[in-house]
């Protein structure tokens, strides 16, 4: 496996980040991979990680009794899987399933939480990168909700 530091610094989500912070993140990072169809996380389980996708596609799904699961969104190379760790109750709110071979850097949030509480700079840096992600996804969900391509826009 490659050096997590290089992988981290090279990942789009952390582009331009302070090398000192990369050092800290690397202490909580490890490389992981998932075969097609494998779940990265399951709804309801403790949200103790997030993933920086390096390769492959992940589907966020909600299962529904008696019906096919609903794919909410797909997440691709260069993007992040896992935001539930940021807010209580720190549990996954959807299943994340690998659609093909997925390689990612997993960041252990339990490891990171202690560090970011004692290092506001690290905490702020993480917030700065996660907050736009929340806003972007909120806007995307709004657009999806409108069902703009449906027959009746109402």
């Amino acid at each position: 496996m490659s050096d997590p530091k290089i992988a981290l610094a090279g990942h789009r989500f952390f582009s331009g980040i302070d090398p000192a912070i990369v050092e800290t993140l690397a202490e909580c990072a490890r490389e992981v991979s998932f075969a097609a169809g494998e779940y990265l996380v399951r709804e309801g389980e403790p949200a103790d990680r997030f993933f920086l996708l390096e390769y492959g596609t992940v589907a966020l799904e909600l299962h529904r009794p008696g019906r096919d699961p609903l794919v909410l969104e797909t997440i691709h190379e260069g993007e992040v899987v896992g935001t539930s760790w940021v807010v209580p109750p720190y549990r996954w709110s959807a299943d994340a399933r690998a659609l093909d071979l997925v390689r990612a850097i997993a960041i252990d949030v339990r490891c990171l939480r202690g560090k970011s509480d004692s290092d506001p700079k690290l905490g702020y840096e993480l917030l700065k990168r996660f907050l736009p992600l929340f806003v972007q996804r909120l806007e995307a969900v709004r657009l999806q909700l409108l069902d703009v391509y449906g027959k009746s826009p109402d």
Binding site: A59, D68, T74, R97, A140, Q144
Partner: peptide
């Protein structure tokens, strides 16, 4: 990319601006 898809869809789910 599509707004909604069954699990059999191999492509992207999400909106165009993303």
């Amino acid at each position: 990319t599509v707004d909604h898809a069954p699990p059999s869809w191999r492509g992207s789910v999400g909106v165009v601006p993303e």
